[in-house]
Simulated assay, not measured.
Amino acid sequence: MRALIVENDDRVARALSRTLRGDGYDVERARSVEEAGRAITAGDFAIALVDLGLDDGDGVDVIRMLRDHPSTGVIVVTARGEQANRVRGLRAGADDYLVKPFGVAELLARIEAVTRRLRVGHTVAAARGSINHGDLVIDQDRHEVARHGELLHLTRKEFDILVLLARNVGAVVERDRILDQVWQSTWEGSSRTLDTHMTSLRAKLGPSAAIATVRGVGYRLEPAAGAVG
């Protein structure tokens, strides 16, 4: 398997490279947004570790480029631990967000979780066809959501969460079930990431889809206005 490290700090890049090579990866390193773009265009990667602070721009731009490569898992590895930066990275399409400093075991565990989910495919979107919910059309074949014909730019996980909720309209979907099917994990870090993704998903959907929080249990997508139960 191939891994891409987008990191301008040589010391950090060497440490990440040693860790990934020790886990069996062939590693390519990019120091800038420009170098990352060339690497992404030239080859496929199982995992990409992306720092946000790069010499020629923002690592978020790299994450957006990786959106066009759904088979590549993306983990932000950065010293920027503020919530605003976490939200930016996850909204841009990152699968996970890891703040420096971190342990090797935690990094490898997160990589394993992300790549495992991608290997088995998008479990919650396995059923083909479209789901209509009010003015939303959720196309599971194309992995797209449209409102009045205009595409909404959801990340992979936001899409998977929405599909799972839409297939269970009016019913509470437990947090553990979402974590198991979307992240294939129920560990605490994934739970915090779910909260961030849910906030972003609600903002993007707006009034088109009301997602209720059932405290201590999970989430429920309310029936669309005018729907017959």
Rank of each mutant, 00 (worst) to 15 (best):
I178S: 06
V217Q: 12
T78K: 07
P70F: 11
G226A: 01
D135E: 14
A15S: 13
V12Y: 00
T186H: 09
R21A: 05
R18E: 08
A203D: 09
V62Q: 08
E144N: 10
F45I: 01
R156H: 15
H133I: 00
A203K: 15
A36Q: 12
I5L: 04
A3H: 10
G89A: 08
D95H: 15
T193Q: 14
G216F: 02
E82W: 05
V172M: 11
G37A: 12
R147T: 10
L201V: 01
V214M: 07
T115Q: 13
G93D: 07
G53M: 10
R167D: 14
D176M: 03
R128G: 00
R64L: 04
T213A: 09
S130W: 03
L54I: 02
L49Q: 06
R175Y: 09
V62M: 09
I5M: 04
R167A: 09
R142A: 15
A203C: 00
R91S: 15
H69N: 11
E188T: 13
R86A: 13
D95M: 11
G103T: 14
A94L: 06
R80A: 11
D96Q: 13
I138L: 00
V87F: 07
T123F: 12
G226M: 06
M198L: 14
L201R: 08
F45R: 09
V87N: 08
R110C: 00
R88M: 08
E150F: 11
S32F: 02
V33I: 06
G121W: 08
D135F: 07
Q140W: 02
L20C: 03
S130Q: 14
L179H: 05
R21Q: 12
P223N: 03
M1S: 12
I40P: 13
G93Y: 07
L164W: 05
H148G: 14
R31W: 05
T41N: 13
G93C: 05
D139T: 04
E112Y: 05
L118F: 08
A203Y: 09
A94T: 09
Q140V: 04
N8P: 13
I178R: 14
V60I: 13
G229C: 04
H153G: 09
S185T: 08
S185F: 01
L20D: 05
T123M: 08
L179Y: 02
M198K: 06
L4I: 01
S190R: 15
A36R: 14
G189M: 03
Y25T: 03
L179D: 02
S200N: 04
D160C: 11
Y219C: 00
G170P: 07
D23H: 12
V172H: 12
R67G: 04
A125P: 06
A15G: 08
A126S: 15
P207F: 10
R21E: 13
R128P: 14
L154P: 13
